[in-house]
């Protein structure tokens, strides 16, 4: 029981950065924009958050800087992919390559430094519950924030006028435009939200998960999140489930080692990536259902007047 509780708690921690970045990408894709730059934005968020937190001595400042950096990066993407109607694949790839290079350059002087990251904060009363108390209510502040953001996105998409507008733009930008919606503005806002969330996810890695900066520390999480959104068929509640599932896959090697199971670290480190491919394969058993859920205009640049 003790072991199970610990494993579940670690799963939530490992799943949180995925949840954050995938929620952002989900909103972005619901507006019809596919941003493959998640990995680059996350890295920039991670490095900016770490440097800001170390310089100011305040974790809040770090988180704030990470979110702003993520948004700034995403605006570069929006300029190319939304305003200039460039190929979204190429623009997103460029953002990832640019972010990987820039973050390594900016962070070169900070490798090996460490700070006091976010500590666990038990919520009174709730944290005394068996199992659940430890798993969900004895976590750091950003985990709670990720859950609040999850509920907000869920309600925003399904219960608000703004969510309806966003989805309308993603399904048919031309029809939305004909109805007087500002397609470009909606897409810019969605891309910015995605950037902010990716920045926050990066900050979670460098300020809470492992409070330090190392080059390429996201280890493909931005890419996994992209697969996660497809797997979740663009539904927030499935993103939550998927994120924790991946979290579990990425800490499995620690669990197995804890149980005295002898295997190579490198082989077990492959697991999250193998699981991602398996998930994509699993999905293709229902290709029709996936197509039904895909935002219709996803990946297609919108040019007014066409």
């Amino acid at each position: 029981m003790e072991l199970l509780t610990n494993v579940l708690a670690a799963t939530v921690v490992a799943g949180t950065p995925l949840l954050l970045v995938a929620l952002g990408e989900l909103v972005c894709e619901r507006s019809g924009v596919l941003n493959l730059g998640q990995e680059g934005m996350m890295l920039m968020g991670a490095v900016a958050g770490f440097i800001a937190a170390q310089a100011s001595g305040s974790l809040a400042v770090g988180v704030f800087a990470a979110i702003l950096t993520g948004i700034a990066m995403s605006m570069l993407f929006a300029l190319m992919a939304v305003t200039l109607a460039a190929n979204q694949y190429a623009a997103g790839l460029a953002l990832t390559i640019f972010g990987t290079g820039l973050s390594a350059f900016v962070g070169a002087g900070f490798v090996g430094h460490s700070i006091d990251g976010f500590g666990k904060l038990a919520i009174p009363l709730l944290s005394d519950l068996p199992v659940i108390g430890k798993v969900l209510f004895t976590q750091d502040l950003l985990v709670y924030l990720s859950l609040i953001l999850f509920v907000s996105v869920l309600l925003f998409l399904s219960r608000t006028r703004g969510g309806l507008l966003l989805r309308a733009v993603g399904e048919s930008p031309h029809a939305a435009n004909a109805n007087g919606l500002k397609v470009m503005t909606v897409r810019y806002l969605a891309v910015a939200f995605g950037g902010g969330m990716a920045g926050l996810a990066g900050a979670y890695l460098s300020l809470a998960y492992t409070p330090m900066w190392t080059e390429g520390m996201t280890a493909g999480r931005g890419w996994i999140a992209l697969a996660l959104v497809v797997f979740a068929s663009w539904r927030p509640e499935r993103v939550l489930l998927g994120a924790y599932l991946f979290g579990a896959a990425s800490i499995l090697h620690l669990v197995l080692q804890g149980l005295g199971w002898k295997s190579s670290t490198e082989l077990l480190a492959m697991l999250p990536y193998v699981v991602t491919i398996l998930m994509l394969v699993l999905l293709s058993w229902h290709p029709a259902r996936t197509r039904l859920n895909t935002p219709l205009s996803l990946g297609q640049p919108y040019r007014p007047g066409r």
């Binding site: 570069l76 300029l79 190319m80 200039l84 109607a85 460039a86 190429a90 623009a91 790839l93 460029a94 953002l95 390559i97 640019f98 972010g99 990987t100 290079g101 820039l102 390594a104 350059f105 070169a108 002087g109 080059e215």
Partner: peptide
Amino acid sequence: LPKAVTGLFQGLLLFFLLTCDAFIHY
């Protein structure tokens, strides 16, 4: 200087390339 300047240069190059490429059509 940090060796990462290589990656920075490559990223900048690709980014500027895509921006300039927009003017093939615009």
